[in-house]
């Protein structure tokens, strides 16, 4: 026991004495240092942004530090509108709806819905992991990477066959709507970019087994083409996908609890131990 005893010592690390921000500058008012006289985002006066920007310009500015060019704005607008219009079957919308109908404090519906979209199957974790996978492999031959993934992940699973983060089957099929969405992004994104690499990768997957695009691979390719790193991508996905998740959830906040199915006992099987 004695040889296992250790001394507890501070590492004496030099912590910053102030929080740093490269995003926002707040100039204090003359008579109260807790109140701002002027506020700037990446150097632009927020009052000017209010006059001259739309939300997509401002969103891009916040994360990239510069206003978007026409192509970047077009891509981010499409991504925002696509993700903003997710349906009520998503886990995010359903967690929000359970909160809404369960009379959860309405302040919590959005954070609950956002937590609901954080998973590695259909959620932001899958987007993050897909971004890391594509970023790590984009300089490699897509067909060779696909060949290796197929060798590593044989189709011997129940449920969806995921051969790489963000890539595989989608309810054992391929969503026609998602493919149309993907085609729209392919038209807007660079021919030699990340989304284009994703297409090459998918071209080498067995189409007859419906192995290809998932939501995460589309979002990952687009975000990477916008220069967004994986560590930001997960949260940006959550941010952009949150409007309908919240809207679906809060739409139940003034409804009776009977508005959402509560399974009858015959549909809720408690298996014998």
């Amino acid at each position: 026991m004695n040889s296992r005893k250790v001394n507890i010592e501070s590492r004496n690390e030099q912590f910053s004495t102030k929080i740093k921000s490269r995003i926002t500058l707040e100039i204090p008012s003359d008579d109260n240092e807790f109140l701002a006289q002027q506020t700037y985002t990446h150097g632009y006066n927020v009052l000017d942004l209010m006059d001259h920007c739309d939300p997509i310009d401002n969103l891009f500015l916040i994360f990239k530090g510069e206003l978007p060019n026409a192509i970047e704005k077009k891509i981010l607008t499409k991504l925002s509108i696509f993700l903003m219009n997710q349906g009520p079957r998503t886990i995010a919308a359903r967690t929000g709806a359970n909160a809404g109908v369960g009379r959860t404090d309405v302040n919590h519906i959005l954070p609950i819905a956002i937590m609901g979209m954080s998973g590695n199957y259909g959620g932001s974790k899958e987007v993050e992991n897909a971004m890391r996978f594509v970023h790590r492999n984009v300089d490699k031959d897509a067909a060779n990477v696909a060949k290796q993934c197929l060798a590593d992940k044989p189709d011997d699973v129940e449920g969806d066959w995921i051969i790489a983060p963000g890539f595989g089957t989608d309810f054992r099929g391929q969503s026609p709507f998602l493919l149309d969405v993907k085609d729209k992004f392919m038209q807007a994104c660079p021919d030699n970019g990340y989304l284009a690499w994703c297409q090459k990768f998918i071209n080498a997957l067995p189409a007859e087994k419906n192995c290809g695009w998932r939501l995460a691979s589309i979002v990952a390719g687009v975000l990477l083409d916008l220069g967004i790193p994986a560590r930001v991508g997960a949260g940006l996905f959550q941010l952009l996908a949150s409007p309908t998740a919240f809207a679906h959830g809060v739409s139940f906040a003034d409804k009776p609890i009977t508005e959402i199915p509560f399974l009858k006992d015959e549909d809720y099987e408690i298996k014998p131990i």
Binding site: S16, K18, I19, K20, S21, R22, I23, T24, L25, E26, I27, P28, E33, F34, L35, A36, Y40, H42, G43, Y44, N45, G65
Partner: peptide, 11 residues
């Protein structure tokens, strides 16, 4: 306001 050290682009 001054407790935040701004290290970004100048106005």
């Amino acid at each position: 306001c001054d407790d935040i050290e701004y290290v970004g682009k100048a106005p």
